[in-house]
Design a binder for these strands. Sequence first.
RNA 1: UCCGGGCUGGGGUAGUGGUAUCCUUUGGCCUUGUGGUGGCCAAGACGUGGGUUCAAUUCCCGCGCCCGGACCCA
Length: 434
Amino acid sequence: MYEGIKGFSDVYPEEMAAYRAVIDTIEDTARGYGFREIATPAMEPAEMYIDKSGEEIVEELYAFEDRGGRQVALTPELTPTVARMVAARAQELPKPIKWFSTRPFWRYEEPQQGRFREFYQMNVDIFGSEEPDADAEILAVGADMLTGLGLDADDFEFRVSHRDILGELLRSFDADVDVREAIRAVDKSEKVEYNEYVGLLVEAGLSDDQAETFVDLLDAGNDDLDELVAFTDDVEPAVENLSAVLDAAADFGVREYCTLSLETARGLDYYTGVVFECFDAEGEISRAIFGGGRYDDLIESYGGPSLPAVGVAPGVMNSTLPLLLQRAGVWPEEALTTDYYVLRVGDTRDVAARIARQLRERGHVVESDVSGRSFGAQLGYADSINAETVVIVGERDLADGEITLRDMDSGEQVGVPLDEFPGDHERPTFDDFA
RNA sequence: UCCGGGCUGGGGUAGUGGUAUCCUUUGGCCUUGUGGUGGCCAAGACGUGGGUUCAAUUCCCGCGCCCGGACCCA
């Protein structure tokens, strides 16, 4: 016996049935908006991540040399790959480009709540539109996924912010501010004490007074963005952009899930406009459920044309989303379902097989005996797979030209003439013949 | 990479310096034709390596994995 690798998970059928229901729901939501599915490689050149993120990223990469001497890495995220794909065909692809995919990613990190070394993530992106409507559509598709899963406004909130508001405010101070570091401090503000937060801002270049002013400004801005414009005109375009996105979100029917939260920054450097993070509204799940935002410069930085982009990336398996769904009581049932079990008694394989085939042709899940088991054992197995209906194909029944239908919930049975089953019925059950 | 807690049949547990309890599960049978409610039989565990000891599942150390936290978050 071998143990699995740390941070990698096995998923058994019952649990996978629940995941499958979740994945189907969120993918159908994206398809409903016209997002088209793409497939991408599990490995890329390691430089693709190192060049963009620095050598320290190697610490969190599954990277190695392949037999051809190439430095390769298991993909830790989708963005560089999709940027390459967009860049390669940017000329021919009609805009906007709306793509999604759901697949595993790998990061060499220490496992924690909702965080593993292999995890499944869906990516939904729009390339080629810088309109607020595109940002709002990303918010809308994200919110629709969650409501489609059974969550409502009491369960989650999108904390929406804008990178340029933070950037312009910081640049407006008469100080040599490391905006990147200051935004990183903002990103941590929810997790640390006030004094530590201010201290981080001071380390980024603000004076003590400026840092406190900045913190107060963000707080005031959450209530009224105009307060920020009053402080400096430089934030006006960003404020207008954020307002326009929220207006569009209102028309798209998802404004109620959005909260203005200027303390939300996202840790990544490449975001350029609206950013947002989804949180458990009850706070039981402390980590973000997922996040997204606008990254207008990234395609170009990967060698493509200048092409605006906005996206969202919900974790699916091995992530915080399942924790939220469980907390909210909407996690799908972890159970097998089986429409029919065709039970064989005696030398009836030919007839049983024909019936099973006819039921499968109607799109049902149908099992039959492949183990040579007794009647009782077959019935026990049918019960263990939650068969709804058992079709008993026995020698005695066939001698009378019949099969027997058994409803497994009630235990009721009825004889049905062989030539009437399944007949014209799309989904024949006990009730149709009782 | 660091910190805290954990690890006993497939799952859940009891217990102990002298190799282990119960529940459940799985397979078979009672019942070559009636499961989910009975009875019988069987299978199946001390994560791993080392140390202390006459003897280690039990005490000590390393490692692995699990849960949670820090760091990081793409």
